[in-house]
Design a protein around this nucleic acid. Sequence first.
DNA 1: TTTTTACTATACCGATCGGTATATTGGCTA
DNA 2: TAGCCAATATACCGATCGGTATAGTAAAAA
Lengths: 188, 188
Amino acid sequence: MDNRENILSVALRLFSSSGYDSVGVQEIVDEAGITKPTLYHYFGSKRGLLDALLEKHFSALLTSVREAASYQGDLPLTLQKVVEAFFQFVKQQKDFYRMQLAMCFSGPESETLEASSRYNRELILILEEMFLKASGDHGNMKGRHKRYAFTFLGIINNYITLYLGNHITLDSREAFLAVHQFSHGIYS
Amino acid sequence: MDNRENILSVALRLFSSSGYDSVGVQEIVDEAGITKPTLYHYFGSKRGLLDALLEKHFSALLTSVREAASYQGDLPLTLQKVVEAFFQFVKQQKDFYRMQLAMCFSGPESETLEASSRYNRELILILEEMFLKASGDHGNMKGRHKRYAFTFLGIINNYITLYLGNHITLDSREAFLAVHQFSHGIYS
DNA sequence: TTTTTACTATACCGATCGGTATATTGGCTA
DNA sequence: TAGCCAATATACCGATCGGTATAGTAAAAA
């Protein structure tokens, strides 16, 4: 078993269930069955381990969402694709998305927000660009792309939160409902 | 200045900006200009301090929302009142709501979730009861009160999050938009 | 006046924090 | 074979963690 990957998966599990700040490096290496110098060899610091975790999973999410968000004239279809891209990712990386959501909402001075903010900015930027292009075909959307991006992501995260609390399953029907709920805010 | 209240306000500021786990008791007492035994005299433990903070502010929020959520035949009006109760509270207790949101999304094994979950359960219960009563007058709502409560609170928290990031201001118009967005999910 | 009680400071506790100096191992390269 | 380098362990670092034993003070109650 590869030590580096093992450390990453143990850290993800612990961070997502107890929070980055309350998990000690000692706890991670104990659970991984190794010692500290091994962890520090691969990641340099606790923060470096967090950064590696974020980079690994966010790059997959961003790629997937970027592809889904490529607007080509049909906004409802694009929105549906984006939601399903999120749902697909979350179903595969439940723990990671739980951790990432917690980081989004952590305090403005926290290390976790600082580490994750650039990825969330990128995510928002992708959505903004999608809405910006779409507003060329929908005059009443002009100048609102930033707000649409935030609101859309917010609705998606609501559904994901329901999923993480085992209240719903993430299927195409739920994705449709999410798009529908959001769309009402645009077209009326 | 009263020591107890001073500790509470310093702790709230630090917890909300850096996170409960990453703030040490020493840091709190230094900022408050006192020493540890004083803090431990009033609150018994760091966790006791957190509990006191939650109790103090949540009791105000719950009272306010409970009153707004008393359904008396006009659901849109009731929803509007509830949203405005949240908005009013958040405008006065920005830091507290930021901290409470962070706790909502903290890991399932975290101390912060354990400390705050009962208050959020109570909040959800109030909303559930409101939707349950309303479903007596709206047949198509039957059996969905739990989900409505989660979704409604989710939308409210989306707007509050936008406010905390200085993207919008919380006024009656925004409250109306929140109600409108939610209502679409019910009536269609 | 004496006693009690609430409050606060000094100084300290063992445990854990993130991180590292040093040494050893094993495999690949020159 | 000689040398190098990635990878790992033992043992340790100073700092900080949450928490407390002890003592003092000041005000209220007896």
